[in-house]
Write a protein that binds this DNA or RNA. Structure first.
Lengths: 165, 165
DNA sequence: GCCTTGACTGTTATGATATAACGTTAGATA
DNA sequence: TATCTAACGTTATATCATAACAGTCAAGGC
C-alpha cells in the first residue's frame, strides 16, 4: 500500500517514552493473567514493536522485525501474534491502512475511534464514548444488535496542519 | 475471504425492486452530469451489478460479471469502476469485507455508517448523522481536521436474530 | 516426577486483494 | 476534422492473509 506506514514523525502523548512502554507492557501482562491467556515471547515482543513504532505497522513490517530477532519468518507468525493482541484488547487493527497499532489505553474496556492522518499516516486513538453511544442508537433504530465497531476517520493531524500552514 | 459475500438473503428496503434500481441509476446519471464526470457503460453496469446484488460484492465478483458481459477481464477494470463510484458517492467501500456496495441514499451528501451482519454478511446503510457529529467533536478535541470517515459496525441483523431465536 | 493434553510455534504452500505501467480507443472541444 | 485528454484493457507484479501440518513446550492429573 504505502511505504509511509509507521514512519510518520508523529508521536502521540499516550505511549511515548520508554517508561510508558514498560507500563503498558506491565498492564498487558496483568491483563493476560486476568484472562488466563499467555503473553508469550513472540506476543510480548510484537506488542513492544507496535509500542515502539508510535504508529501503525503492517503485518509484514512486524514480521521483518520478529524474524530479525530470531522468531519465525513466515507470515502466520506475525498474524497470529497480532490477532492475539487484537482479540485481547492490547492492539487494534486499522483496516484502512492494512496495519496494526498498540492500544493506547489498554486498561479501559473502551471502543476506540482512530484518527488517521492522510499526510503522515500517523494514527491517534480518540475517545469515542459519544460516538459509540450515537452508533448504538443508530443500530437500535435499524433493529440491529451491535457487537463491535470500526471507526476510522481520515484527515490531517495537528502536526501536518502546521506543516502545511 | 468468505464465500458468503453478496449472498446474504437480506434485502434492504431502500434499493430493492427494479423500479428503485432504475431510479437510483437515474439519480446517478444526474449526479454525474452535475459533477461533469462520465457514467460510462462499465461504470454504469458496475453500479447496476452492485444494486442488483442487495449486499456487498468483492471486486473480483464484480469483475467476473463484467467480464461475462464482454467488458475487460482484468482486475483494474473492476477497481477503476468501483473507485469511480465510491469517489462520486454512488457506492461505498466496506473495508471489513473487502467489498463494495451501492449507496442506498445517493442523493444526500451523507456520511454513512454500515451495519454488517456476522451471520449473513448483509450490509445495511444506517443514518449516521449523530454518529458523525460525535466523531467531529472527538476529532476537534484532538486538534484533528476531519475529512471523511469509515464507520462499520459488526453484529446481528434483524433477520438473523429471528433465525437464531 | 512423569505422562497426557492442548496450546503455541514455525514451516510450506497457496489464496485473495490491489495496483503499476503502458499502449490503444473513444469523447469532448475547438 | 484535428487535437487533446479521459477512459479502457492488457500484462505483470506487488501486497496482504490464511490453510494445513509437524514439531515443541508448558500446565495439570496421577
Amino acid at each position: 500500500m504505502t511505504e509511509h506506514v509507521g514512519q510518520g514523525g508523529f508521536c502521540c502523548a499516550s505511549h511515548s517514552g520508554t517508561a510508558n512502554v514498560q507500563a503498558i507492557l506491565d498492564l498487558a501482562e496483568a491483563r493476560a493473567k486476568d484472562r488466563r491467556v499467555r503473553l508469550t515471547p513472540v506476543r510480548r515482543r510484537t506488542l513492544e514493536i507496535l509500542l515502539q513504532a508510535h504508529g501503525a505497522l503492517g503485518a509484514y513490517e512486524v514480521l521483518e522485525r520478529l524474524a530479525a530477532e530470531g522468531f519465525g519468518s513466515q507470515p502466520p507468525v506475525a498474524y497470529r501474534a497480532l490477532n492475539f493482541l487484537v482479540e485481547n484488547g492490547m492492539a487494534h487493527r486499522i483496516r484502512r491502512l492494512n496495519a496494526f497499532t498498540a492500544c493506547a489505553h489498554p486498561s479501559e474496556d473502551h471502543r476506540a475511534a482512530f484518527l488517521i492522518c492522510e499526510s503522515c499516516d500517523s494514527v491517534t486513538e480518540a475517545q469515542a464514548g459519544a460516538v459509540n453511544t450515537a452508533l448504538s442508537a443508530a443500530a437500535d433504530a435499524a433493529g440491529f444488535v451491535l457487537d463491535r465497531a470500526t471507526i476510522e476517520a481520515v484527515g490531517l493531524c495537528r502536526a501536518c496542519q502546521r506543516a502545511q500552514a
